Structure formats: structure tokens, C-alpha cells
Simulated scan of single mutants.
Amino acid sequence: MTKNSEFPKSPALNDSTWTGMVPVDDTALAATDTGGDGIPIIYCNGQFATQGYWKRVIAELGPEFRHITFDERGRGKLSQASSDYSFEAAVRDVDAVLDARGVDKAIVVGWSYGAFVAAHWASRNPDRAIGLVPVDGAQAHDWLTDAMEVRIRKLFKRLRWLTALLRPTGLIPRLSAAQQAECNIELGKVSRKAALGPVLDGLVVPTRYVLASGASLGSKGDEQEKIRASLDEVVARNPNIEIHAKVASNHDHILRKDFHSIAEAVRVVNALGLQNH
């Protein structure tokens, strides 16, 4: 792990900020840690997003918290490629980053794919998780069908020329179109009620969802709204889980336009989590 001047700077970074590479398995992950004495927060990205997406949330929360972000395997400009892009590897990487930064307990915040990762990590680490904020993700719903698998593979095959063009910029992951499709299909399996339902039911830490509205890239009609509605059953079963807010932004714009609501949810779980710890 070394200081690296190639990392992008943002208003959230300060003189105590550490940037470097975290070795894990056969790869290394680009990570940023703002340091300080605040409660640590670790942020889990969307499946093909980067740590820069969190800059508005981090700026809104400020130095009261210690902010830890990282780019998943093969994402961004610096995180290295891997032979394993599985969901389980993504969950393990949360541990790797926290351990590398010497953090025992943290709030975990995740958007989209990262919300599923964050929920699994919080469920498996009740003594380490202070609280959980899933942002428009981690909903138990059986949306993956045979027809949907075909649709996902066709979508990424159709976009493969664009992904190849943008890959050097770090805006697109270094996964092939086929690998990206398989990651989405695996997420559909992770999302199933039989798989995710017990994970959510077992959460013992304060959990506050922030939900978007409308559709997202690749979805049709009211597909997303049906998925979000599935949370009503989960909230009814587990008193630790509440929907903090449903905002006007759609799935793709929520971190940019509704960062205030996400920051508010973080403050709520922090206050409740500190009481429990």
C-alpha cells in the first residue's frame, strides 16, 4: 500500500487523506481514506461505477465522519483486473479494505449493486457494522427470468463496441461484455427472495433505505417500482429496517441529485448504531 499521486482529487480530500492500493487475492484495489477521528463509513459502489460517485455525499457529511471509498476489481483507472468478479469476492473486498485501513467498526453504505454487497456484509458482521444505508438496491425480488437473461446478454453484446472505446478512460470497467453480463445475471440470482430475504430478515443493525423513483438504464415500464415495492414485506418483518426516504431522482441520478437524503439516512443510522454499540 503506497501513496499514489495518480488518484483524482476532490473537495472531500484533505491533508490527512490516504490514497493507495489494497492487495487482495490476485488483484489490488484503489482506495481512498479521508482519515480523522470521525465514525468510519465505507462506501460500496454500483456494479460498474467508481468511488468518485460518492463525492457529493461525502462533502455533505463532512469531517464529522471518516470516509473510505474504493474501486472494485477491474473498475476505475487503477484497480487491477482479477480472475474472480463474483459477488462473494465483492463482499470479501469490503473486509480487505477495512482491514487494510485498520478499521474495526463502520457504517456501510451501498448504491445499486453495492447495496446488495453492503447488506450481505452487514448481515455477516453484526459486531462490525454500526449501521447500513442501502441506496436503491438490496431488494428481495424474483426479477431474473430466462427471458431477462437473454435480454441482459443481448444488451451487453450490443454495447461492447462502446465499452471497448471507453475502457481506457476508467469510466467503463475492464471486464469483457460477457463478464459484465454474467455479473448482472449473478445479481439477479442474489436478489431472489429465497436468497436475499433471509439476509435482510437477519439484519440486527439499524438499516435505512433511500429509494429512487421511476426506471433506470436497461429497465422497462414499472419493473423498478415493482422491485422497490417488495421492500414493504421486509420492513414489516424486521423492525431494524425502515425506508428513510423515497426521492424524485431515478436510479441513475440518485447519488448526484439526492445526496442530502442519503446523508440524512447516514446520520440516523449513526445515532442509532452508537446507542447499540
Rank of each mutant, 00 (worst) to 15 (best):
T2A: 13
K3C: 08
K3T: 15
P11Q: 07
A12G: 02
D15W: 02
T19Y: 00
A28D: 14
A31M: 04
T34W: 00
G38H: 05
I41E: 00
Y43T: 12
Y43W: 02
G46F: 04
A49S: 10
R56P: 00
E72Y: 14
R75P: 01
D84G: 12
V94K: 09
V97P: 09
A106F: 08
G110P: 13
Y113P: 13
G114W: 08
A115H: 13
V117Y: 13
N125V: 05
A129G: 06
L132T: 06
A138W: 02
W143V: 11
L144F: 02
D146W: 06
F156T: 10
L159T: 11
R160Q: 15
R160P: 11
L165Y: 12
L165F: 13
L166F: 11
Q179S: 03
C183R: 06
N184Q: 12
I185L: 00
S191G: 07
S191T: 11
R192Q: 10
K193C: 14
A195K: 15
D201Q: 10
L203H: 01
Y209K: 14
E223S: 03
E225S: 02
E233D: 10
V235Y: 03
K246G: 06
D252I: 01
I254L: 12
S261A: 15
E264M: 04
A265N: 00
V266K: 01
N270I: 04
A271W: 05
A271L: 02
